[in-house]
């Protein structure tokens, strides 16, 4: 685009709608995460939906902007942190006298222990899934410059 042509964004509607939708998608991810005990959903689905909200942001506003919002360093840590959180819960249950991943010993009574355990491991799954989905997207997306609409 030469400097004297007026800058017209052909995707202005897309950008405005996406800006409105992205927070809602992220919010829905957390609803799926924390409502998983009562309805369908859980850490895996919530992680994918949260990653999709960031991917949508990257598709509309560019990969560099998405990387500023959700830095790759954070993703590298998140990938392993989630698995660590899950395995760590098992080890803590171990140290408190139960079997590996037996949440019943985590709190003063068994049902509370189960609730705590499931909450923590679902959080671990959320962290790992979100990070891995974004890592794969970043890895593929960062190899090539973004192409113009006509090239698809």
């Amino acid at each position: 685009m030469t400097p004297d042509t007026p800058i017209r964004d052909p995707h202005v509607i897309l950008r405005v709608i996406a800006k409105f939708l992205i927070p809602l998608i992220a919010l829905f991810a957390f609803y799926v995460q924390f409502h998983g005990d009562y309805g369908p959903g859980g850490g895996f689905q919530a992680g994918v939906i949260l990653a999709v909200s960031v991917i949508l942001y990257a598709l509309i506003f560019g990969l560099d902007e998405a990387k500023r919002a959700f830095p790759p360093a954070l993703i590298r840590v998140g990938m392993s942190l989630g698995v660590l959180l899950y395995g760590g819960t098992g080890v803590v249950a171990w140290m408190m006298g139960g079997e590996f991943l037996n949440y019943s010993v985590l709190a003063h009574d068994a049902i509370h222990g189960q609730h705590w355990g499931i909450l923590v491991i679902e959080l671990g799954v959320l962290t790992t899934v979100t990070s891995v989905m974004l890592a794969i997207f970043y890895a593929f997306g960062s190899r090539q410059p973004e192409i113009s609409d006509e090239d698809w």
């Binding site: 990938m79 392993s80 790992t128 891995v132 890592a135 794969i136 890895a139 960062s142 190899r143 090539q144």
Partner: peptide, 27 residues
């Protein structure tokens, strides 16, 4: 489910080892 989380982690790790997180995207 723990195994599944580890599988997902391994998949992400494999992609990162092959492609890396920070390609230069034609810069």
């Amino acid at each position: 489910t723990f195994g599944e989380a580890v599988v997902i982690f391994a998949a992400g790790l494999g992609v990162l080892l092959l492609l890396g997180l920070n390609g230069n995207a034609g810069h």
